[in-house]
């Protein structure tokens, strides 16, 4: 469970988040949606103790993020940042391997190596294992970053726009894998998505953020309605159906 209580955040006097109060239950996929600048990345950064909490309280799995030692949290919570691509010259395998650092602290064992190989397989990176990250294409690099987060093997995973740069096959594969992690391993996944159709199909719950406030939250079908989405994004959105799937028509 991720408990966010009365969290407010300002940057240089400007309010970015105001009175955020929300509980994300353990297990399942929660999609965080909302327009650019709504505060989604800021909120994830606060949950992952990357920004200092100014007001309010956040606990992940009962661990107060402001007070729990950072290496303890690193074994419970992993985050993929929106703009977190690395500039360092590391091979893909080494980069993904650093996802295991919270567990082995520099002394990787067989379990860590297995986890790395599994992460490489999972994101179609095995053939790229010896390549330097700075020689990859945008989507390959994004997959390497996702694989690193995945390799961390935490119960809670925060992903900020993981579908960035991914082609449709890899985007679908990633969402299916997240689904599998939630269903089979009871992982709690919070994912920022701009393509609402992925939220419609894969998310259990949706939180809509607008102007630093929670504008909507609840089970996916309750939030994904024409009036809610239209007012959340300030732009007309229609819903349609293809077979048994709800599709969000926002592009025309």
């Amino acid at each position: 469970m991720i408990e966010i209580r009365q969290v407010s955040h300002r940057i240089g006097g400007t309010p970015i988040l105001s009175d955020i109060d929300v509980t994300i239950p353990k297990g399942g996929i929660t999609a965080l949606i909302g327009p650019n600048g709504a505060g989604k990345s800021t909120l994830l950064g606060l949950v992952a103790r990357l920004e200092r909490l100014q007001a309010g309280r956040i606990a992940v799995d009962g661990l107060d993020v402001a007070r729990t030692p950072t290496d303890r949290l690193a074994r419970t919570l992993a985050i993929l940042r929106q703009d977190g691509t690395v500039a360092a010259r590391l091979t893909v395998r080494d980069l993904v391997g650093f996802g295991r650092y919270p567990h082995h602290k520099g002394w990787p064992g067989p379990a860590d190596r297995d986890a790395v190989e599994e992460a490489l397989e999972a994101f179609d990176l095995a053939p790229l294992g010896t390549r330097f990250v700075d020689t990859l294409s945008g989507g390959q690099r994004q997959r390497a970053m996702v694989a690193m987060t995945y390799a961390q093997g935490t119960d809670y995973i925060l992903l900020d726009e993981p579908l960035n740069n991914l082609d449709l096959a890899h985007a679908r594969a990633l969402m299916q894998r997240l689904r599998g992690m939630a269903d089979r391993h009871g992982r709690t996944i919070v994912v920022v998505l701009h393509e609402v159709n992925y939220a419609a199909h894969y998310a259990d719950r949706i939180i809509g953020l607008r102007d630093g406030r929670i504008a909507a939250q609840g089970p996916a079908p309750e939030v994904l309605t024409e009036p809610t989405l239209s007012s959340l994004f300030g732009s007309p959105v229609r819903l349609g159906r293809v077979g048994e799937h709800t599709v969000v028509l926002h592009h025309a």
Binding site: G45, A48, R49, L50, T70, D71, R72, L73, A74, R75, A78, I79, R81, G84, V86, A88, L90, F98, G99, Y101, P102, G106, Q152
Partner: peptide, 21 residues
């Protein structure tokens, strides 16, 4: 400290995410 310096080279956020002080 080699591993820790490598991680520090990934930036502050990546370091904190991986549990580094």
């Amino acid at each position: 400290f080699a591993d820790r310096f490598t991680i520090a080279g990934l930036g502050r956020e990546a370091s904190v995410s991986l549990g580094l002080n």
